[in-house]
Design a protein around this nucleic acid. Structure first.
Lengths: 253, 253
DNA sequence: ATGGACTATTCCGGATAACGGAAGAGACTT
DNA sequence: AAGTCTCTTCCGTTATCCGGAATAGTCCAT
C-alpha cells in the first residue's frame, strides 16, 4: 500500500501534512485532542501522532495538561512577522484605539485574502453589539462593510469573477443577486464608503471606508454597531479621518 | 552520505526543517531571499529550495515579486488561534486602547515565555518615545518593566535559576547583579508594581503591574515613556485599574 | 471486578519521498 | 566575455517517513 497517498484527497509532503494538521485549528476550537486532529486532517492516527509530536518538539504546538493541543507561542511569535501584522496592524493600532474610544463601537480592520475579507484586527466594544468577525478569521466580501469596500475597489475582472460565484446569504437581507450587488458596489465607489444593514447579523449594521495607498485600496476600516445607533454620516467622517491617518502612518514608514 | 544528518547541529525531521526555515524570520528582517534562508537555517541550497517550495504551496510563505520570501497570511491566520492571542490579547485590547488614550504613552502587554518576556501586544504612542519591544518579540526579564513583574511573581526556584544565569546589560543602568536584582524583585512584590529607569534604553523608563487570575500572575501590563514624564504614582494607579479590568474580562469568559 | 468503547502510544517491515551534491540556467557586474 | 552571484533542476541513494496492527492507558456502565 502506497504510504503517501490515501484514497481521499490528502496532504502530499511531510511538511504538507504538518500544515494540514495546523490548519485544523482554523475551523475548530482552539484546543483539540489527537483524535480530533486525526479526524480533521484525515490522517491516520499513527501518522497524526508522529506529526504532532514533531510539531510539539518544534514549539509549534503545545499539549496542555488536559491532553489537548494548542497553538504554541513559537508559531505565534513567528507569525507576528507577517507583513499583515508588522506593517499594517501594528501601525494602524493606535488609530484604531482612538477610533474605539471616540465611537465606543466595534472597530474592524480587514484586507482582501483569497476572495474573502481577512480580519487583521478588531476591537470589541463592551458597550456595543457582539460581532462574528475575529482577528485572523475570514468572512464573505459581500455581506460585510469592510468586504464590500475591498471588493468595490478591485479590478473589474476580479469583481465579475466574484459575482459569478454562488454567493451565500447569512440573513434574508444579504445581497446575493449579482446585479443588485454590482449596483451596490458602484454606489460604494461613488460614495467612498459602504453600509450594511443586517446583511451578516440581524439587528447589526456597519459602515466601512477604504485605506488607500499609492492609489490602491490595501485595506478597509469599519465600524460595526447596533442598527439603531448607526449614524452613518458621523461615522463616515470619523472613519475617513482615521483611514487617512493610517495611510499616512504607513507612508511614513 | 547520510542525507538527514549534516555535521553541524542541524534540524532532524522534515517538519523540523520546515520550522527551522520559518524560524529564520524571527532573528532577521521580514523578507528574506532563498540564499539568506539557506544560510540562516544551515540547510543546503537545494534542500532549502525544496522546503521553501513546500511551505509556499502550503501558504505558510509567500514569495514577493522581488524574489524575497515573507510569512504568508495562512500562517498568520492560524497563529491568531493561539491562546495568547485569542484568550489574552483580544480581550485585553479594549482596555489597552483606553489606557493608550488616557496616557498617550507606549502600552505593552507581555507574558512569560521561555525565560523571557514575550510581548503579546504593544501600542506605540506617536507622541511618546520609540521603544524596542515588538509584538511577538522577546526581551530579557530583568531589564524591562513587564519582565521584572513577571519574574517577581514566579516560584522561588525559577527566580533563583534565572538569577544564576549570565545576565546581559543593555545599558550601564541595567541591574545584572543577582543580589541587587533579588532585592529589586522583593520590592516589586511588596509594592505591587515595577519601575525601570534606563535599564533597557537610555532616556526611557517604564512602570508595570501584574495581571492576576486565580492568584497567579499570568501577564503584565506596562507603560514605557520618556524618563522625565514618568509620573510613577499616577501611572501605577491607572495601570492597576486596567489590570483589574483585564482580569475581570478574562474571568467573564 | 469485568467488559466494552474510546483514546493514545509503540512497533516495525516496506518503499517512497526526502536528501544533497553536482551541474545547469539566469542575472548582473567587471 | 569571463566572472560572480543566486536560483533551479536533475538524479541516484537510502534514510526516513508511512500507516496497519498490536499494545497500553483511560473512562464509564454493567
Amino acid at each position: 500500500m502506497s504510504p503517501a497517498r490515501t484514497t481521499s484527497g490528502a496532504p502530499v509532503s511531510s511538511i504538507g501534512r504538518g500544515i494540514a494538521v495546523l490548519a485544523c485549528f482554523t475551523s475548530r476550537a482552539h484546543a483539540l485532542t489527537l483524535s480530533e486532529l486525526s479526524a480533521a486532517s484525515k490522517l491516520p492516527m499513527s501518522s497524526t501522532h508522529r506529526v504532532v509530536a514533531e510539531l510539539v518538539t518544534g514549539g509549534f504546538l503545545v499539549r496542555g495538561q488536559d491532553k489537548r493541543y494548542r497553538i504554541g507561542t513559537r508559531l505565534w511569535s513567528i507569525a507576528q512577522l507577517a507583513p499583515v501584522s508588522e506593517q499594517l496592524r501594528e501601525r494602524a493600532l493606535p488609530t484604531l484605539a482612538r477610533l474605539y474610544e471616540e465611537t465606543g463601537e466595534n472597530i474592524t480592520l480587514a484586507v482582501l485574502d483569497r476572495g474573502q475579507a481577512l480580519y487583521v484586527d478588531r476591537l470589541v466594544g463592551e458597550r456595543s453589539v457582539p460581532i462574528v468577525s475575529r482577528s485572523g478569521g475570514h468572512l464573505p466580501l459581500h455581506t460585510t462593510g469592510v468586504g464590500k469596500v475591498l471588493l468595490a475597489y478591485q479590478p473589474k475582472e476580479s469583481i465579475e469573477k466574484y459575482l459569478g460565484r454562488r454567493l451565500e446569504r447569512p440573513t434574508p437581507y444579504s445581497i446575493a443577486d449579482p446585479v443588485k450587488l454590482e449596483k451596490e458596489l458602484a454606489e460604494v465607489r461613488t460614495n467612498g464608503y459602504s453600509v450594511t444593514r443586517q446583511e451578516m447579523t440581524p439587528g447589526t449594521g456597519s459602515v466601512a471606508v477604504p485605506i488607500v495607498r499609492k492609489g490602491r485600496t490595501i485595506a478597509a476600516v469599519g465600524v460595526v454597531a447596533h442598527l439603531a445607533r448607526l449614524d452613518v454620516n458621523r461615522l463616515v467622517a470619523t472613519l475617513q479621518q482615521a483611514a487617512a491617518s493610517i495611510a499616512k502612518e504607513l507612508d511614513d514608514h
